[in-house]
Design a protein around this nucleic acid. Structure first.
Lengths: 264, 264
DNA sequence: CAGGCGGTGTTTGGATCCAAAACAGTTCGG
DNA sequence: CCGAACTGTTTTGGATCCAAACACCGCCTG
């Protein structure tokens, strides 16, 4: 019987070359996260191949990775569709994030280093600065013109610092996976429309940071979990409001955004 | 500029056809989970293609999916290597599982239906029966001869029933992902070597079931988290013992199990 | 006029082909 | 005697090719 094992080559350098497919997947994912490729978009293999200057073969493999990460849905003989969350998806995701990041905060409170603590404080400061700037921007330009800015970056940095401090690699990865489960604009668009919510969000994070600072695992976890759940409720509610306005036929229905085959 | 969107076809039936690639990935994954393909095996594309009667193209896409699921490591120009956990991997995974399944138990306690509760009880009964049988088997045949049996199946069924009862789809998926992160035999081989541990494991589950039955979310969560952490400790310790005996050069080192290219 | 039917163009899916990379065994030089 | 370079073989990676599936459109029929 032909076995598929047969031990073979031994890799000298582990991950020096990222590999074309992984790079492609990361790039496509980035465009989806940023909103450049909107939810409900059909990803055409040939178009992607052209834009990245490669053939369809590596594109197809990249799409399989994105499928496994639940970024796109692949329909046999039809193509890959960029997944969009439903309101319950949002709630569920934030609930789970509350658990995972809560655990991370708890662990971080017991084992954070001084260096990591400095990073956390810096992120909080950046968050505060970004909030001021964003509020000023909204006051002059309006909510609609808001684009991904320093507040969003600081937001990610704060979370990354916390996850890094907890020291559990798998936890980092899983939390990141949840964070990237849907485009960023869905998140901060919900919060930016009411600046007072951002104040609240910042205050919650200050509480978390303080708890970690004084090495209080129980409080750190509690505040972090609360923070995630509260944020999740806000995002989900905003999403539902928005969905009520533009009447998408069905939240779960794939037929949304069908348009026409060639948009010429 | 050529855009990669261009709205297109609308899928009629959602998931009627699994698709060859998904099927392949599932089959390979199953063989890894069952231990038929051991950890550290180099997966040769052509060999896999031959065994499944297809060409290398779909095999490569399937491997990309497994890579995204962290089942294999893909090294550019070298191949795909079946990942094996380290002891810290095991501990981390069970810690996180404690959180997720704890949450699941908490939710299940509040919203489980009578039908689901019946399923949970049935799984517990099967677990008990499987335990008796396994103990008898170990007494006559010895630990070494133990293979995946009804106890393992009942174990999975109990967890699935609980996750199903919690009603959060993403939670189900993430817990399943953790459960399948490494071969099953690593798990129950650790527990089977000391039957009293299985008694303890069963008692813990009875406690959980009882808490869910009386709709006590706090207790359900507590017992479930405890159960997962305890199991994780046992598995990790057994793994460390085993690893100490067969002196693998380095836990993280890829060069393990190098052998020769063609094992003819 | 509505609904079913087949033609046509487009897109995906799998197989095949070829070049580049890596392993293994050998040879050459110190 | 040991190590570095060379060569042959194996395997992966990307491109290309062809068939099958699907969407769109017009036509035909009831």
């Amino acid at each position: 019987m032909s076995t598929e094992e047969a031990a073979g080559p031994r890799p000298r350098r582990a991950v020096s070359d990222p590999g074309l497919v992984d790079d492609l997947a990361a790039r496509i994912h980035a465009q989806i996260r940023s909103g450049d490729i909107p939810i409900g978009t059909w990803l055409r293999q040939e178009a992607l191949a052209n834009t990245f200057g490669v053939s369809r073969t590596p594109v197809r493999e990249a799409l399989r990775k994105l499928q496994a990460d639940r970024i796109v849905d692949v329909f046999p003989h039809r193509g890959a569709l960029v997944r969009g969350p439903t309101a319950v998806d949002l709630r569920e995701t934030y609930t789970i994030r509350g658990e995972l990041e809560g655990l991370a905060a708890e662990l971080a409170a017991t084992r954070i280093t001084d260096e990591q603590l400095r990073r956390l404080r810096a992120a909080e400061a950046a968050l505060r600065a970004g909030l001021d700037e964003l509020r000023a921007f909204v006051a002059t330009e309006g909510v609609g013109a808001v684009r991904s800015g320093p507040w969003d970056a600081a937001d990610l940095e704060f979370r990354d610092a916390m996850l890094d401090a907890c020291g559990v690699e798998r936890l980092q990865r899983m939390a990141a996976e949840l964070r990237d489960a849907f485009p960023r604009n869905l998140v901060w668009a919900a919060l930016a429309e009411e600046p007072s919510l951002l104040d609240e969000s910042l205050a919650q994070r200050a509480r978390i940071r303080a708890a970690v600072e004084r090495r209080d695992p129980v409080a750190a976890r509690r505040w972090m979990t609360d923070h995630c759940r509260r944020t999740g409720s806000l995002v989900a509610e905003a999403f539902e409001r928005r969905q009520a306005v533009e009447d998408l036929p069905d939240p779960r229905d794939i037929r949304a955004r069908l348009g026409r085959p060639t948009q010429g």
